[in-house]
Design a binder for these strands. Structure first.
Lengths: 329, 329
DNA sequence: CGCCTTTGTGTAACCGGTTACAGATAACTT
DNA sequence: AAGTTATCTGTAACCGGTTACACAAAGGCG
């Protein structure tokens, strides 16, 4: 690997001049610039980011902390972030926390040690001490925080929308699935749905789940029909759970949406490929990622007027696990 | 941020001694070590990785290059890699290449500039010049290369298995979906299936697809039934395509698996949640990721006897889009 | 024409670690 | 007891960039 000194020697100038050419700042003569460019090309030189980071006291890396990339909602977020962050010349340092505070702390620690310029976190412990004393631009994604800017979709509204959709379409004995209690957005959508159901003239019951894992979802689906076999409408905590329930319902011979209506949450890519395709509340994951990245970059650049929260809209995606709404209602 | 000099001062020793304590090498007196530890704790010091990387000429970062994290096969790989790499104290720099040589090159470039210790790549251009002159441990994942060690599952065998499964279970007019031509593993499984079908006493036709994207999959599914409405067995290029086809087949009222058998490839998490659940050829993605990481770490540690290729087994996962095999056959 | 500003370039300190080398003392050897 | 080796610690060079500062030459201005 050629260094800046090799280039300087080859071009017959000092390292300062080469640095000036590289960063396009300070004064450099036309002739000199050409010679330096030539040397760079001929040596196939590219500057060492590490050395630069050391002096500058910051790298061009951004830390990304996700609960679990294996959950289909997060790759979309990640992709949105990456695309945006790249355009601005940053790279991503990735970490999966599994919602464990220890892992989270470890990652934040190493991110700092690597002098990241910023951090995007989609984990729960937003007001954790890990973050409060952080002298670093931080954006929370899909979670809100009092201390740091956040990008999220309105979970309460989403929950409400989901419940309203089922009620309007005639479900009378609704089962509401409550997601993991420690996951904030899961609780929001639950609360939203709960409020809407409470206000409507329907019977409903609540079933708790403790994880979003695939296997767990399947088990919960079986349990659902044992406990509440007469339900005619299910509000799932997310699309994975919804699709597991759909699977189980079909296995049991339920007609969807005639006997049982079902609505998910997230609108992960697979939702449109289930059969019947899944009605759901869409969160614009890719866009959320993009927005979070944009916001962080603005913070990194110390721009003025930085939004404290960016709320993206949730929308009802009406597919085929819900009936058409009764025009007479 | 406290530096090593602050610690040294606080403990009344030189920076060299602090460094010795940190890295647990060289001689350090018991008393001195205690004082240094105390200073580290009281200053809440943690060493700057960037400075360390600069001197050592390598960081503790590993580059990971994926085609697209949004494709459900890759998060699993990524997670396997991350879990393994973490245990050895490394972190991941992530890049999505979209199979574009330019993006790939850019990422490799910045990985090098950040002095990564190793690189895991799941992209196609394995014998590309990008990699040939790389003075860095590289492992190819899900792709093979002549120059670098590779971890993969046997695509030819997988294709064969898929075709055999359908033939044995009585499909007579099979449609074989060919994946994107530039994606090596897609071609392998296609070749394997093709060979098996050619040797069997069945009619078959081939349908080409150019991408694995969800929207594309849906379109191709429609096209399939327009062109080959009499097919009674489909070998899909992967599970996404299979599930799209399943969706379309159900929409058209086909009975699965009675009228139409269907087999996918990969065994992504959703395959077991489709209804009917998808029969498929399983690639152990998480394990592949783990193996690739282990292999890379061995290379980084310059251990002897490094495998050039690690082939993981593909297995037929018999679910409900294929019939039970005829015991009289 | 003398003074000030702009342009062009080099020297060397600096970022925060690691380690080669040297020097000092203590512990073994024969 | 003298020589050898093990233990402990500090000084300073080094990794490869960036930039403050200095200096020189050229251009602009009253």
């Amino acid at each position: 690997m050629a260094t800046i000194r090799d280039v300087a020697e080859q071009a017959g100038v000092s390292v300062a001049t080469v640095s000036r050419v590289l960063n396009d700042n300070g004064y450099v003569g036309v002739e000199t610039r050409k010679r330096v460019m030539g040397a760079i090309k001929s040596l196939n030189y590219s500057p060492n980011e590490v050395a630069r980071s050391l002096y500058k006291r910051e790298s061009r890396l951004i830390g990304l902390l996700l609960p679990d990339i294996t959950n289909p909602f997060f790759p979309q977020l990640a992709r949105g972030i990456e695309d945006e962050v790249n355009r601005a010349g940053f790279r991503l340092l990735l970490g999966n926390s599994d919602e464990e505070a220890t892992k989270e702390l470890e990652y934040i620690q190493t991110f700092l040690q690597n002098q990241v310029v910023g951090l995007i976190s989609a984990t729960n412990n937003t007001d954790n001490e890990n973050y409060t004393n952080l002298d670093l631009p931080v954006v929370f994604l899909d979670r809100v925080s009092k201390q740091h800017p956040s990008v999220y979709a309105d979970g309460i509204e989403g929950g409400r929308l989901a419940a309203k959709a089922l009620v309007e379409r005639g479900s009378k004995r609704i089962t509401l699935i409550k997601g993991p209690g420690h996951v904030k957005p899961a609780m929001d959508r639950f609360q939203g749905a709960l409020a809407e159901l409470s206000a409507a003239e329907v019977d409903f019951s609540v079933l708790s789940t403790s994880s979003y894992a695939f296997d767990d979802a399947r088990k919960r689906a079986e349990e659902l029909f044992e406990k509440h076999s007469d339900t005619d409408g299910v509000i799932a905590s997310n699309d994975i759970v919804a699709i597991a329930i759909l699977h189980e319902a079909l296995r049991l011979g339920r007609r969807i949406p005639e006997d049982l209506q079902l609505i998910g949450y997230d609108d992960i890519p697979f939702s449109s490929l289930s059969y019947p395709s899944l009605s759901t509340i869409r969160q614009p994951a890719y866009e959320m990622g993009k927005e979070a990245a944009k916001l962080l970059i603005r913070m990194i650049r110390k721009e003025k007027e930085i939004d404290q929260t960016i709320q993206l809209p949730v929308t009802l995606i009406e597919r085929n696990t819900t009936r058409k709404v009764d025009p007479n209602a």
